[in-house]
Protein backbone atom coordinates (compact mmCIF):
# COMPACT_ATOMS: atom_id res chain seq x y z
CA UNK A 1 0.00 0.00 0.00
CA UNK A 2 1.23 3.47 -0.90
CA UNK A 3 2.32 5.69 1.95
CA UNK A 4 0.06 8.65 2.54
CA UNK A 5 1.80 11.83 1.42
CA UNK A 6 0.87 15.12 3.08
CA UNK A 7 1.98 18.69 2.36
CA UNK A 8 2.12 20.90 5.46
CA UNK A 9 2.25 24.65 4.87
CA UNK A 10 1.65 27.96 6.60
CA UNK A 11 0.20 30.78 4.50
CA UNK A 12 1.12 34.45 4.25
CA UNK A 13 3.19 36.05 7.00
CA UNK A 14 1.95 33.91 9.89
CA UNK A 15 5.22 32.99 11.61
CA UNK A 16 3.89 30.68 14.32
CA UNK A 17 5.30 27.30 13.52
CA UNK A 18 4.68 25.38 16.74
CA UNK A 19 1.50 23.72 15.50
CA UNK A 20 2.86 22.93 12.03
CA UNK A 21 6.01 21.29 13.39
CA UNK A 22 4.00 19.31 15.93
CA UNK A 23 1.48 18.08 13.38
CA UNK A 24 4.24 17.13 10.91
CA UNK A 25 5.76 14.99 13.67
CA UNK A 26 2.43 13.37 14.54
CA UNK A 27 1.81 12.43 10.90
CA UNK A 28 5.34 11.07 10.45
CA UNK A 29 4.94 9.03 13.63
CA UNK A 30 1.76 7.63 12.06
CA UNK A 31 3.81 6.43 9.09
CA UNK A 32 2.94 9.19 6.63
CA UNK A 33 5.33 11.03 4.35
CA UNK A 34 5.33 14.74 5.14
CA UNK A 35 6.52 17.47 2.82
CA UNK A 36 7.10 20.37 5.15
CA UNK A 37 6.80 23.68 3.27
CA UNK A 38 7.06 25.73 6.45
CA UNK A 39 6.31 29.46 6.57
CA UNK A 40 5.76 32.12 3.91
CA UNK A 41 3.64 30.41 1.29
CA UNK A 42 0.95 31.78 -0.99
CA UNK A 43 -1.83 29.57 -2.38
CA UNK A 44 -0.14 29.47 -5.82
CA UNK A 45 3.01 27.91 -4.40
CA UNK A 46 1.07 25.46 -2.26
CA UNK A 47 -0.99 24.26 -5.22
CA UNK A 48 2.09 23.93 -7.41
CA UNK A 49 3.95 21.87 -4.81
CA UNK A 50 0.89 19.73 -4.19
CA UNK A 51 0.63 18.91 -7.90
CA UNK A 52 4.37 18.49 -8.49
CA UNK A 53 4.73 16.18 -5.50
CA UNK A 54 1.42 14.45 -6.09
CA UNK A 55 0.41 14.71 -2.45
CA UNK A 56 -2.72 13.04 -1.11
CA UNK A 57 -3.69 15.81 1.28
CA UNK A 58 -2.79 19.48 1.78
CA UNK A 59 -2.57 20.53 5.42
CA UNK A 60 -2.69 24.24 6.27
CA UNK A 61 -1.52 25.22 9.73
CA UNK A 62 -2.65 28.58 11.06
CA UNK A 63 -2.18 30.80 14.05
CA UNK A 64 -3.46 33.98 12.42
CA UNK A 65 -6.66 34.79 10.61
CA UNK A 66 -4.96 35.04 7.22
CA UNK A 67 -6.04 31.50 6.31
CA UNK A 68 -9.70 32.55 6.31
CA UNK A 69 -9.02 34.79 3.34
CA UNK A 70 -6.53 32.47 1.65
CA UNK A 71 -8.93 29.51 1.85
CA UNK A 72 -11.05 30.93 -0.99
CA UNK A 73 -8.02 31.54 -3.19
CA UNK A 74 -6.63 28.11 -2.49
CA UNK A 75 -9.85 26.29 -3.34
CA UNK A 76 -10.35 28.34 -6.49
CA UNK A 77 -6.82 27.56 -7.69
CA UNK A 78 -7.26 23.85 -7.04
CA UNK A 79 -10.47 23.86 -9.08
CA UNK A 80 -8.78 25.80 -11.88
CA UNK A 81 -5.91 23.30 -11.99
CA UNK A 82 -8.41 20.46 -11.72
CA UNK A 83 -6.33 19.14 -8.84
CA UNK A 84 -8.40 16.75 -6.75
CA UNK A 85 -6.46 17.23 -3.52
CA UNK A 86 -8.39 17.51 -0.27
CA UNK A 87 -7.40 20.41 1.99
CA UNK A 88 -7.44 20.24 5.78
CA UNK A 89 -6.91 23.24 8.05
CA UNK A 90 -5.76 23.18 11.65
CA UNK A 91 -4.76 25.62 14.35
CA UNK A 92 -5.60 27.07 17.74
CA UNK A 93 -7.43 29.99 16.12
CA UNK A 94 -9.92 27.74 14.31
CA UNK A 95 -13.24 28.04 16.12
CA UNK A 96 -16.27 25.76 15.58
CA UNK A 97 -17.87 28.62 13.61
CA UNK A 98 -14.78 28.89 11.41
CA UNK A 99 -14.80 25.13 10.87
CA UNK A 100 -18.37 25.28 9.55
CA UNK A 101 -17.53 28.20 7.28
CA UNK A 102 -14.46 26.41 5.93
CA UNK A 103 -16.43 23.29 5.12
CA UNK A 104 -18.89 25.40 3.13
CA UNK A 105 -15.91 26.67 1.14
CA UNK A 106 -14.93 23.09 0.29
CA UNK A 107 -12.26 22.50 2.93
CA UNK A 108 -12.41 18.76 3.69
CA UNK A 109 -11.72 18.99 7.42
CA UNK A 110 -10.91 21.63 10.02
CA UNK A 111 -9.19 20.97 13.32
CA UNK A 112 -9.40 23.33 16.25
CA UNK A 113 -7.35 23.36 19.42
CA UNK A 114 -9.41 20.59 21.00
CA UNK A 115 -8.76 18.11 18.18
CA UNK A 116 -6.90 14.99 19.22
CA UNK A 117 -3.89 13.69 17.25
CA UNK A 118 -5.55 10.35 16.46
CA UNK A 119 -8.58 12.22 15.14
CA UNK A 120 -6.37 14.15 12.67
CA UNK A 121 -4.46 11.04 11.58
CA UNK A 122 -7.69 9.13 11.03
CA UNK A 123 -9.29 11.92 9.04
CA UNK A 124 -6.23 12.38 6.80
CA UNK A 125 -6.02 8.62 6.19
CA UNK A 126 -9.67 8.52 5.16
CA UNK A 127 -9.29 11.51 2.85
CA UNK A 128 -6.22 9.95 1.21
CA UNK A 129 -8.00 6.63 0.78
CA UNK A 130 -11.06 8.32 -0.74
CA UNK A 131 -8.82 10.20 -3.17
CA UNK A 132 -6.99 6.98 -4.16
CA UNK A 133 -10.34 5.31 -4.82
CA UNK A 134 -11.44 7.94 -7.36
Amino acid sequence: MKRVKVLIAILGLDQHEVGAVAVARILRDAGMEVIYAGRFNLPTGVVKTAIDEDVDVIGISCHSWEYLYYADELMELLRKEQAEVPVVVGGSVVTPGDARELKEKGIAAAFGPASRPEEMVQSIRELAAARAAT
Binding site: G12, L13, D14, Q15, F40, L42, S64, W65, E66, L68, Y69, Y70
Partner: peptide
Protein backbone atom coordinates in the same frame (compact mmCIF):
# COMPACT_ATOMS: atom_id res chain seq x y z
CA UNK B 1 2.20 43.17 13.03
CA UNK B 2 3.87 40.34 11.14
CA UNK B 3 4.74 42.48 8.11
CA UNK B 4 6.24 45.19 10.31
CA UNK B 5 8.34 42.65 12.21
CA UNK B 6 9.50 41.14 8.92
CA UNK B 7 10.46 44.57 7.50
CA UNK B 8 7.84 44.43 4.76
CA UNK B 9 5.61 47.41 4.07
CA UNK B 10 1.84 46.94 4.47
CA UNK B 11 1.31 47.07 0.70
CA UNK B 12 3.55 44.05 0.14
CA UNK B 13 1.43 41.34 -1.54
CA UNK B 14 2.28 38.85 1.22
CA UNK B 15 0.93 41.25 3.85
CA UNK B 16 -2.53 41.85 2.45
CA UNK B 17 -4.47 39.60 4.83
CA UNK B 18 -2.27 40.38 7.83
CA UNK B 19 -2.08 44.18 8.07
CA UNK B 20 -2.64 45.20 11.66
CA UNK B 21 -4.11 41.91 12.86
CA UNK B 22 -1.29 40.79 15.17
Amino acid sequence: DTATMGLLDPDHPFARHAVGTQ
